[in-house]
Design a protein around this nucleic acid. Structure first.
Lengths: 203, 203, 203, 203
DNA sequence: TATGAATGAGGCTTCATTCAT
DNA sequence: TATGAATGAAGCCTCATTCAT
C-alpha cells in the first residue's frame, strides 16, 4: 500500500507539444521497424525520453497512438497530393506532378511505410477509419477532371480503391529498388498507366 | 461471437494430416476474424479439437502457422490465376478470365482476406517471403505476352507490384459493396484498366 | 515478439486439488493480513509455491478468488451453526451450543476474520452475494423455533440482520481480548441476550 | 454515472476551509460509491473543483483523507447518539430516542454507509483507530445507567461491540427495505431487543 | 504420439505522489 | 499558496511455449 516513491524528475525539459512530437516521431519509427505488437509503450517512452505515464496523458491507449500516427500519415499524403494536383491547371497534365510528389513523399517516409498496413490493429480504436481520408480526397480531385470532360467517369466506389492501389503499387515497386534511377522508371510507368487508365480516350 | 467448433472426436480419429488441415482451417478463420495478436494458440487448438501440444508438433511456433496459411493463400491464388490464364489461348483475351477468376476467388475467400495484410507479423518468421510467389508468377505469365508482342514490356521490378496492386484495388473495390452487380462493374473497369495499361498500343 | 522462455519447471509436484487448496489457504491469510488491495496475485502465487498463471487457471481473476474465499468462510460458518443447532432438540436449549460453536469457529478462524468485511471488493464480482447464505440459514433455523412457538416472531427482513449482527458483535468482543476466560464471558452474555431477545416471553 | 460536479470557480474564490469541506464532501461520496481503491485522488480533486496538489496540502495522503472521513462519520454518529440520549432523563426511556435518532442518522447518511466498512484500508494510516470513538462513547453513556441501577452490568469489553453490532444490525435491516414503514418495524424490534438485553430484569 | 497443466516473462495501464512554475 | 504535468513503480492479466504423463 503506502508505497514510497523516490522520484528523480527533470521536468519541463521539453514543452508539451515537443513531448507529443517526440512520442509520435519515436512511435512511428518503432512501430514501423518492429511492428505494432512488437513495440511496447515502454520502448516508445524510453526512446522518446519521457515517462510511460506521459505517453498515456497524451494518448488514451496504445492503439490511439497508432491511430494518430496513421491519420497523420494519411493527412500528409493527402496534402502532398493536393498540392501537386493544384500546381498544374490542365487536368491532362496533373498526373505527372502527382506521381512525382507521391513517390517523393514515399521516399521521404519510406521508413514508416509499414504503418500503412497496420489497419488491422486499428479496428475498433476510436472512430478513426483508416484509408477514408485518402479515398475521399482522391475522389474529390478526380471528380473535377471528370466534370471537365478530361477523365473517364468511373462507377462510384471504384476510383478510390483503384487509384489508391496504383499508388501503393508504385510505392512498392519503388521500394523494391530504392534508387533514383528506378524511381524515374516507376514514375514513367505509373504515368503511362494513369493516363491510359483514366484519361478519356477522346482526350 | 461466431466461434468455430469442430466436434470433439474420440482420440486417434483424426489422422495427422487431418489435424493439420483442421488447425489450418481454424487458424485461417480466427486470425482473419480476430487478428493475429488477438488469436491465441489455445483458441485455435480448442476450435480445431486438438491439444495445444499438437499444434506445436505440426508448426514450430505461432508465426509459422501464420506463414503456412499465408503461403497457402498465395498458392491458391496463383493457381487460380494460372488456370484462368491458361484457359484462353490469345494473350489479348487472357485478362478477362483472369480478372473474373481473381474476383471469384476473392469472393470465395473474402472471410480470410485480412490475412493478406498480416505480413508484418511474418517478418523474421522462417524464410518465407510474403508476396514473392505471386509477383513471380505474375511476371512469368505476363512475360509470355511480352515475348508474343502483345503486352507492353515493363522494366523489371515494376509489373509485379503494379499488377498485384491493381488486383488488390479490385478486391477492395469489390469488398466495399459485395454485391454481384458491383462485382460486374469492378470487373469491367479492371478489365479496361488492364487492357489499356498492359496491351501494346499497336495491339 | 518471439520471446525465449527458459523454464525450470517442477510440475506435478502438487496434485491439482492441492494447488487450489494451497492458493486458497495462502490467499485467505494474505488478504486478511494485508488487505485485498494490499495483496497482489504475485504475492499469493509465490507464497503458495505456484506460478501466477496457475492462479489464473483456477480463478478467473483476483476478485473471484476473494469471492471463493468469502463464500467458503460463510459455508463453513453456516455448517458449524447448523450442526450446533441440530445437536440439541429443544429450541430453548439451542442457543447455547450455537453460541459456543460460533465463538469456537471464530477462534479457529480469527486470523481470517477480516475477510468478512471485504464485501466492498466483491461487489460485481461474479454473482456471489456476500452474506446471503448466512442470513438465509439463520432465518430457516430460527423459523422452526417460531413455528414451535418457542421464539418470538419477527417481521420479515429483520431477524437475519439482527442475528448476524449479534454474532459479529460477539466475535468482535471476543477478538478484543482473545483469551479463553474472556470467551466464556462473551458466550455467557451473548446467551443472555439471545434468550431475552428471541425467546417468547411466555416460554 | 452520477458524477459529482462542483462548478469550477474562479481561483481564490474558495477559502482553505471551503476547500477542505469540498474535498471531504466529494471524497465521502466517491469513496462510498466507487470504493476506496476505485476512487483516485484525481477523481476527487476534479469533482471538488480543486487541484490535486491542493488535496495533498490538506491531507498528507490518500488514506489520511479516508481516515478523516471515517472519523467525522463516527463523530457525527456519536454526537447524534449523545443528544438523543440526553434528551430524556430516565434511563429506562433513553433507548427509544436513541434508536430513532440512530436510524434517522443512518437514513440521512445512507449514501455514505459503505465508508463504515472501509476500516481495512485504514490499517496503518495515521494513529486513528476506527470504531474506538463510538465504542468509548457507548460505554460511557451506558455506564451511567449501570451506576443508576437501571442497566445490567456487563463485563468490560463486551458492551461496546454488542451495542455497536446491534446498531449495525438495525441499519442493515433498515437498508434491506428502506421504506418508512419498515423503519418503524426495525425501530420497534430494536427497542425490544435493547430493553430485554440491557435493562436490569428487576427494572 | 497426444495431451493440457504449468510456467513466468512481459505488456498495458493506473495512479499516488512530487514539485517546477 | 495553487496548479496539474510528470513520473515510474507496481499490479493485473495473457499467452507462447514446454514437457511430465
Amino acid at each position: 500500500m503506502n508505497v514510497i516513491h523516490i522520484v528523480k524528475q527533470r521536468r519541463r525539459e521539453m514543452n508539451p507539444e515537443g513531448k507529443r512530437v517526440a512520442i509520435m516521431a519515436v512511435g512511428e519509427r518503432l512501430f514501423a521497424r518492429k511492428g505494432y505488437a512488437g513495440t511496447s509503450i515502454a520502448d516508445i517512452a524510453k526512446a522518446a525520453g519521457v515517462a510511460v505515464g506521459s505517453v498515456y496523458r497524451l494518448f488514451p491507449d496504445k492503439s490511439s497512438l497508432l491511430a494518430a500516427l496513421h491519420q497523420r500519415m494519411e493527412q500528409r499524403f493527402v496534402e502532398v497530393m493536393r498540392q501537386a494536383w493544384m500546381s498544374v491547371d490542365a487536368y491532362e497534365d496533373k498526373f505527372r506532378p502527382l506521381i512525382d510528389a507521391m513517390l517523393l513523399e514515399a521516399e521521404r517516409t519510406q521508413e514508416i511505410m509499414p504503418l500503412y498496413n497496420m489497419t488491422q490493429d486499428l479496428v475498433g480504436a476510436s472512430d478513426y477509419m483508416p484509408g477514408v481520408q485518402m479515398m475521399t480526397a482522391i475522389e474529390a480531385l478526380y471528380g473535377g477532371g471528370v466534370e471537365a470532360g478530361v477523365f473517364r467517369a468511373l462507377p462510384p466506389g471504384i476510383l478510390g480503391p483503384f487509384a489508391h492501389a496504383m499508388v501503393e503499387g508504385g510505392m512498392r515497386a519503388w521500394m523494391m529498388d530504392p534508387t533514383p534511377i528506378h524511381r524515374q522508371k516507376v514514375a514513367s510507368e505509373l504515368l503511362i498507366v494513369f493516363q491510359k487508365a483514366f484519361l478519356r480516350p477522346s482526350a
